[in-house]
Deep mutational scan, measured.
Amino acid sequence: TTTITTTNEEDARRIATEWKNKGYTVHVEKRGTTFRIEVR
């Protein structure tokens, strides 16, 4: 599992989409101002 964190919502969406397009399972969680993107 790879975890990526960013405070930028646009980055979070872009990163999540990129990983999904590669065939990975992506889970995005917002904690306060931080977005945690888990890639499996």
Score class of each variant (00 low, 15 high):
Val26Gly: 00
Glu18Gly: 05
Thr34Ile: 14
Val26Ile: 05
Ile37Ser: 00
Ile15Pro: 00
Ile4Arg: 03
Gly32Asp: 07
Glu29Asn: 06
Thr1His: 12
Arg14Lys: 10
Ile4Thr: 03
Ala16His: 03
His27Arg: 11
Val26His: 00
Gly32Met: 04
Asn21Phe: 07
Asn8Gln: 05
Ile37Gln: 00
Thr33Asp: 15
Glu38Trp: 12
Thr5Asn: 07
Asn21Asp: 11
Arg36Phe: 15
Gly23Gln: 02
Arg13His: 13
Val26Tyr: 01
Thr3Leu: 14
Gly23Leu: 02
Glu10Asn: 09
Thr2Trp: 15
Ala12Phe: 03
Glu18Gln: 08
Thr34Arg: 07
Arg13Ser: 09
Arg40Glu: 10
Ala16Asn: 02
Asn8Arg: 07
Arg31Pro: 02
Trp19Tyr: 11
Thr33Val: 11
Tyr24Leu: 04
Asn21Ala: 12
Ile4Asn: 02
Thr7Pro: 07
Gly23Cys: 03
Arg40Val: 13
Glu38His: 14
His27Lys: 11
Arg31Ser: 13
Glu18Trp: 14
Arg40Thr: 15
Phe35His: 04
Thr5Met: 12
Thr25Lys: 10
Ala16Glu: 09
Arg36Ile: 15
Thr25Asn: 10
Val28Tyr: 05
Arg36Ser: 11
Thr7Asp: 15
Ala16Pro: 00
Ile15Asp: 01
Gly32Asn: 05
Arg31Gly: 05
Thr33Tyr: 09
Asn21Ser: 11
Lys30Tyr: 08
Glu29His: 10
Glu10Ala: 11
Glu38Tyr: 15
Glu10Ile: 09
Glu29Pro: 00
Tyr24Thr: 01
Thr3Gln: 07
Glu29Asp: 07
Thr5Arg: 06
Arg14His: 06
Gly32Cys: 04
Val28Gln: 03
Lys22Pro: 00
Val39Glu: 00
Ile37Phe: 01
Thr5Ser: 08
Asp11Phe: 09
Glu38Pro: 00
Ile15Ser: 02
Arg31Tyr: 14
Tyr24Ile: 02
Gly32Val: 03
Asn21Ile: 09
Thr3Ile: 15
Thr33Trp: 06
Asn21Cys: 06
Thr2Ser: 08
Thr5Asp: 07
Lys22Phe: 05
Thr2Val: 14
Glu18Asp: 09
Phe35Thr: 03
Thr33Asn: 15
Thr2Phe: 15
Asn21Leu: 13
Thr33Gln: 13
Lys22Asp: 03
Glu10Asp: 12
Val26Ser: 01
Trp19Ile: 03
Thr1Leu: 14
Arg40Met: 14
Thr1Asn: 10
Ile4Lys: 03
Glu9Arg: 08
Glu38Ala: 07
Arg40Ile: 14
Glu38Gln: 10
Thr7Gln: 12
Thr25Glu: 13
Ala12Asp: 00
Thr17Ser: 12
Asp11Ile: 09
Thr3Lys: 05
Arg36Trp: 15
Glu38Arg: 08
Trp19Cys: 02
Thr5Leu: 13
Thr7Glu: 14
Thr17Gln: 14
Thr33Glu: 15
Lys22Ala: 10
Arg13Thr: 11
Ala12Arg: 01
Glu9Val: 09
Glu9His: 07
Arg36Val: 15
Val39Ala: 05
Ile37Lys: 00
Ile37Tyr: 00
Glu38Asp: 08
Ala16Leu: 05
Thr25Gln: 13
Ile15Trp: 06
Thr3Ala: 07
Ala16Trp: 06
Lys20Tyr: 10
Thr6Val: 14
Asp11Lys: 06
Glu29Met: 09
Arg40Leu: 13
Ala12Pro: 00
Glu9Gln: 07
Thr6Asn: 02
Glu29Leu: 09
Thr34Asp: 10
Thr2Arg: 13
Arg40Lys: 13
Glu18Leu: 12
Val26Ala: 04
Gly32Glu: 06
Trp19Asn: 02
Ile15Ala: 03
Glu29Lys: 08
Asp11Asn: 06
Val28Arg: 01
Ile15Met: 05
Phe35Leu: 04
Asp11Ala: 10
Lys30Gln: 12
Glu38Asn: 08
Val28Asp: 00
Tyr24Asp: 01
Trp19Arg: 01
Arg31Phe: 14
Lys22Gly: 04
Ile4Glu: 03
Ile4Val: 07
Gly23Met: 02
Arg31Leu: 14
Gly32Ala: 05
Lys30Val: 10
Asn21Gln: 11
Val39Leu: 08
Arg31Trp: 13
Arg14Met: 08
Arg31His: 14
Glu9Asn: 04
Lys20Ile: 14
Phe35Lys: 01
Glu10Thr: 08
Thr6Phe: 05
Val28Leu: 07
Thr5Ala: 05
Thr33Cys: 08
Thr6Cys: 06
Asn8Thr: 09
Asp11Trp: 09
Phe35Met: 03
Thr7Arg: 09
Gly23Trp: 01
Gly23Asn: 03
Thr34Asn: 08
Val39Phe: 05
Lys20Pro: 00
Ile15His: 03
Thr7Ile: 08
Gly23His: 03
His27Asp: 06
Ile37His: 00
Arg14Ala: 09
Thr1Glu: 08
Thr6Leu: 07
Thr1Phe: 14
Thr33Ser: 13
Asn21Trp: 05
Arg36Thr: 15
Lys30Gly: 04
Ile4Ser: 02
Ile37Glu: 01
Thr17Pro: 00
Ile15Thr: 04
Thr7Val: 08
Thr6Asp: 02
Lys20Thr: 12
Ile37Ala: 01
Thr2Asp: 05
Thr25Leu: 12
Glu29Thr: 13
Asp11His: 09
Thr6Met: 06
Lys20Trp: 08
Thr3Tyr: 15
Arg13Gly: 07
Glu29Gly: 05
Ala16Lys: 03
Arg36Gly: 03
Val39Arg: 03
Thr1Arg: 06
Ala12Tyr: 03
Thr7Leu: 10
Val28Cys: 05
Thr17His: 10
Thr34Lys: 09
Glu38Phe: 14
Ile4Pro: 01
Gly32Phe: 04
Thr25Met: 11
Thr7Ser: 11
Trp19Met: 07
Thr2Gln: 12
Arg13Pro: 01
